[in-house]
Design a protein around this nucleic acid. Sequence first.
DNA 1: CAGTGAGCGAGCTTCCGCTTGACTT
Length: 958
Amino acid sequence: MSPTSETAKGGRRLVIVESPAKAKTIKGYLGPGYVVEASVGHIRDLPNGAAEVPAKYKGESWARLGVNVEKDFQPIYVVNHDKKDQVKKLKELLAESDELFLATDEDREGEAIAWHLQEVLKPKVPVRRMVFHEITKDAIQAAVASPRELNKKLVDAQETRRILDRLYGYEVSPVLWKKVMPRLSAGRVQSVATRLVVERERERIAFRSAEYWDLTGIFDTGRPGDNSDPSTLTARLASVDGKRVAQGRDFGSNGRLKDAAQVLHLDEANARALAAALADASFAVRSVESKPYRRSPYAPFRTTTLQQEASRKLGFGAKATMQVAQKLYENGFITYMRTDSTTLSDTAVNAARAQVTQLYGANYLPEKPRTYAGKVKNAQEAHEAIRPSGDRFRTPAETGLSGDQFRLYELIWKRTVASQMKDATGNSVTVRIAGRASDGRDAEFTASGKTITFHGFMKAYVEGADDPNAELDDRERRLPQVTEGDPLAAREITADGHATKPPARYTEASLVKELEEREIGRPSTYASIIGTILDRGYVFKKGTALVPSFLSFAVVNLLEKHFGRLVDYDFTASMEEDLDRIARGEAQAVPWLRRFYFGEGTEGAAGGAAEAGNGDGDHLGGLKELVTDLGAIDAREVSSFPVGEGIVLRVGRYGPYVERGEKDSEGHQRADVPDDLAPDELTVEYAEELLAKPSGDFELGTDPGTGHQIVAKDGRYGPYVTEILPEGTPKTGKNAVKPRTASLFKSMSLDTVTLEDALKLMELPRTVGTDAEGVEITAQNGRYGPYLKKGTDSRSLETEEQLFTITLDEALAIYAQPKQRGRAAAKPPLKELGTDPVSERPVVVKDGRFGPYVTDGETNATLRRDDDVETITPERGYELLAEKRAKGPAKKTAKKAAAKKAPAKKTAAKKTAAKKTAAKKTTTAKKTTAAKKTTAAKTTAKKTTAKKVAAAAESAAE
DNA sequence: CAGTGAGCGAGCTTCCGCTTGACTT
């Protein structure tokens, strides 16, 4: 039955797909009678935070998780805030339809979206599940003609995955807040990604370079050369007296030969001596070996390979690639860009083959279409490979595109066309040349070449290489046509020194490749994984390299030591296997989750759940147990790394620093480590340098009055100047002398402040005079800015300059005015919300330390994230107050009372934050390149935010 | 991570995967 005959019956069908662009295309294939609309991804999810948890669950201990861990891990689902309108639209469309087709992607997530749609839309008309893997008219019409049922087991597998990720992320992250720094995060994917980067850096730190030498000879055939037969060839020394000369690959990461007996390690002296001994030797061709060469085209693009190639060839980051691809997709130039499949539809194969013939000739077209087996182990293959759309590919010139879109399209087009072309063939040749040195040793040189006789797919496309020195596939290297026994003259023999290099750092593209190989992450998330670990400050970019921060060393260290099972590289792969079993009905979700969360030995535990080892034998502790008792996690230990010579690097709540000796002991030293220092660059020497001259100090000179040195520093509350007291000045005890200090004015900055400024600032507080009763009035600079102080009576000043200029008369005039209460108190409420129905008091919105809040004069409640001062309704205000009253006043435990002291400081920190960021930016800019600057500024900005919060959080790391 | 003066009370951070705009810079 065709769609049109159905329409004739007058039925109207609603088809829901995931992507609006897809909806648009499909609409054209289905014709009238079908309404096609998109869900625009997932429509429901677990609540994000407390604000999204429905009121009836608010009091539950597990509400924070959004999963009832006490009752079979029942999830709470809420319609995503940004999907409310879309859901409403879908409901309206459904009301006018006689049949519903859930046409979401055919993978785990797509099945779940379909199920959520069904749950939310509550259709009263027949519901069908329809699936297709390619968007062609035939495929769509076939799909609509043969719908199936919703696969609830697959939905279960998705839900299990979702719950595991939530439990992992929301249980482990708080451990990091307590033990390392607030706002950090851990997750199944990001933590392993971070660990990979850290582990690579550890290898680099442990790496010991090896030096080795060899010889390069330029040999002459004695014939005049031409393009196909050059007259010289360059060959490298391969062996001496039959013993192979050591090359880079013969050395281990410890700088030693892997097998010293098998190879000859030449040092500089030996190499030079051999070169000299070969200076007058005569050489001849010992052998010529020729082998056929053959290379097959690369598979069409999937998400990861597109990201890698766009990085290598176009210099795009993963995010940029996806953004450009999205535009191409939306405008109908390419197929869907988030895919793990390399399969081309028949339509696409035909289009590619037609284009091969047309552009390169039939000679380049293989007899049969090429197919590419899926390389990706957990591929869900819901989509095609990434290719030009349509049944006839537009050449790049025909698209009318320009800029990045043009370049990315061209890349995709070439790769797709090349994937349906013939192999490249040719010959690879190895020539061995021998000569006898004056000391009698036999030296053998080798040279290898490659000629391509038929370029095949290389006519259209050659893959890029990560290593700039690597040879591309299509590079020819011609050797002279020589045969065994031909005499050769050595024109030049030189000794060359080499050093082994540490393993290269990951780039965005190579990390994504690694993650894909380990089955971690999905096409839709690869780019955002990079974004997450950058945002958290776990890694930063140096050129294209991803460099782990010291912070990430501390985090990974903690996770490896205490959550080893969770950051095991095979955790996700093992989880995937289990999820597949759940999807097949061979395992059940609840026992599996129970085992993960509560551990082994709980009743009904299913076998096999992601148990890759912490090496703790039989007992498999559940996640719950691990996050409950944190006593075993020594915050100081996990964030300490020995540098050498008694110096330790520590990751504190304010960032990394180096330290020598115990705090408050003789000879204790401490210095900040720059945020953008690569861990493998922290040597003992550099640490000594940092300790000798603490970073952030600007020496301004000597105070002529006291002889004390004056420095400008960047402190907890912003930039300030202070004096350095001479050695031996008691810092503690009753004779303690405290150095004079003063905050910089807002108009000053750390790197421009002068000694003169500093001395003037340190004169503060200034005595302005005394009032009629003889009480002294002083002018000071405090945490709320400049102010006057008379006994306990203080008054704010308008400008910092007034601290120096205000006269006694002016001060007295200010005191003659009634005291202005604080700014907030003096300010009228932001908004009035009428009278609260419960307390019958007037409700107003005020601005406070923690942002806007509603109050009836008795109960206060902070506005939630989704509330807005402008739009808040009186009803919402009463609701917030009612919630707050229900919750009761905060318990005044010892811990809370202690924490209470901190917020007072926070306001000051907030105030100086902007100044501070600006100051740091400029100082950093001096030392770094433009590229670094952005990273540094970003890190600084983030760090400042972290500082604010850190002030309020309980201190643990130090 | 210096050390000062007042106001008013905490609440939230965090995961992975599906999708696009709606925002600002």
